[in-house]
Design a binder for these strands. Structure first.
Length: 396
DNA sequence: TCTGGGGTCCTAGGACCC
DNA sequence: TCTGGGGTCCTAGGACCC
């Protein structure tokens, strides 16, 4: 028997939070974002959307489109408490809740709806109660799989409620633009449109008739993903366990574009420090360090290195990150740098494999290795500098 | 004032071991 | 000396989502 999976999405969540703080903002064009260098809109009100403003848009552009736009700085602490209220509210109905960010979640209502005849009224009621208790507005999708529920909650906003049974897939999803397919993004869409696939219905036809061509465009996995979901065979399993981070990263656009090594070094140090703090708070250590570097022309590259002993020590993270940067730096002008700790494992899991003493010893050994590497690099540099000095003198 | 910052997952090639 | 696959790990890059 099919499960009843629900996706609940808070409408314009950050903006709604600001409206709750200051109700005079309601119905006005409001956006969350900042106007500084590289500032973008993270969310905006429906009134602002009418002007063509949307999330991800550079702030200055949004202000051009909508000069009366009210810009609010983000207040994540408040958003977090509102998000907790939202989750608490839903968990009163069912414990089968899977988090999907601060403003959306999946939940399994199969048990709750066993003896309910009118599913729509049930969720209209939930929607209304959420509003009464928290002042938050949501859209709800109800379906046999998570994917279909997600498509359902996206179908109508704000305050939408859409039920998609397997037999409704053709009627509801097929007429939608391919842009609305969750999982097909802005790279794949144009390529699909190029071969005449504009709607989800077109895609369904192509799955039957043009599978080889589709596989070329989206890869084997992408093809299977799309096919499975359109046939209503997607996952209906709710993962209630809190998500375990697989990487912890920190990146920042510099105050101004630069190729000044000291400035970049300083930034890499700050980023490493924060990554270390967050990893320690999560009780995680990682064995891969990755850096990301973005140039002024928005080309970016990643470099990473994996080592034997996982760590969350700030000096170790910095040392690896800076080494990666230095050995790939060719004097280019940099816009953004980022440091990420990957291949995370819990310190608890590690301690099962080795005693605490071993772990401490490992830490010390890896620090020593880093020191030696550092010394080697410095010596090489010095030798290089001396060699070039000698060359110069010889020329004279 | 052109284009943030946090992630996850997938692919493809090369190295290395058996 | 040359020739094979299979499996796993590492690295770089890309697509996508919130």
């Amino acid at each position: 028997m099919s499960k009843i999976i629900v996706h609940i999405d808070l409408n314009a969540f950050f903006v709604r939070c600001e409206e709750i703080k200051d109700p005079s903002l309601e119905n006005l064009p409001v956006a969350i974002g900042h106007a500084g260098r590289g500032g973008i809109i993270s969310t905006c009100s429906y009134a602002a959307r009418k002007f063509g403003v949307h999330s991800g848009m550079p702030t200055f552009k949004a202000l051009n489109l909508c000069p009366s736009l009210i810009l609010k700085a983000s207040d994540f602490a408040f958003y977090r408490t509102m998000s907790h209220s939202f989750y608490r509210f839903v968990r009163r109905y069912t414990k089968m809740v899977e988090p999907a960010g601060s403003d959306e979640l999946y939940a399994d209502f199969t048990e709750q709806l066993k003896n309910v005849k009118d599913v729509e009224s049930y969720f209209r009621n939930l929607q209304q109660k959420l509003f009464e208790e928290t002042k938050l507005k949501c859209s709800i999708g109800v379906a046999p799989t998570k994917f279909l529920a997600k498509m359902g909650s996206d179908y109508q906003k704000p305050l939408g409620l859409t039920v998609i049974r397997r037999k409704d897939i053709k009627k509801i999803l097929y007429p939608l633009s391919i842009d609305d397919f969750y999982g097909i993004g802005k790279k794949t869409c144009p390529r699909l449109k190029q071969i005449g696939i504009n709607t989800i219905g077109d895609l369904a036809v192509a799955i039957e008739n043009d599978s080889e061509l589709l596989k070329q465009i989206m890869g084997e996995t992408g093809f299977e993903y799309v096919k499975e979901h359109l046939e209503g065979r997607g996952s209906d399993v709710i993962h209630t366990e809190p998500n375990d981070p697989k990487s912890i990263g920190n990146s920042s656009t510099l105050m101004h574009d630069t190729s000044d090594l000291d400035e970049i070094k300083q930034m890499i140090y700050q980023l490493s420090e924060e990554v270390s703090q967050r990893a320690k708070a999560e009780k995680k250590i990682g064995s891969t360090i990755q850096i990301v570097v973005k140039n002024t022309d928005f080309k970016s590259f990643n470099k990473s290195i994996t080592f034997d002993t996982p760590t969350n020590d700030k000096d170790a993270i910095f040392s690896h990150a800076y080494q990666l940067f230095e050995s790939n730096f060719e004097g280019m002008v940099i816009r953004l740098v980022g440091v990420t700790l990957q291949n995370l494992v819990s310190i608890q899991d590690m301690s099962i494999q080795m005693t605490f003493f071993d772990y401490e010893q490992h830490e010390e050994e890896s620090k020593t290795k880093l020191l030696i590497n550092d010394l080697n690099r410095k010596m090489k540099k010095e030798l290089f500098v001396r060699a070039s000095q000698v060359k110069k003198e010889n020329k004279k």
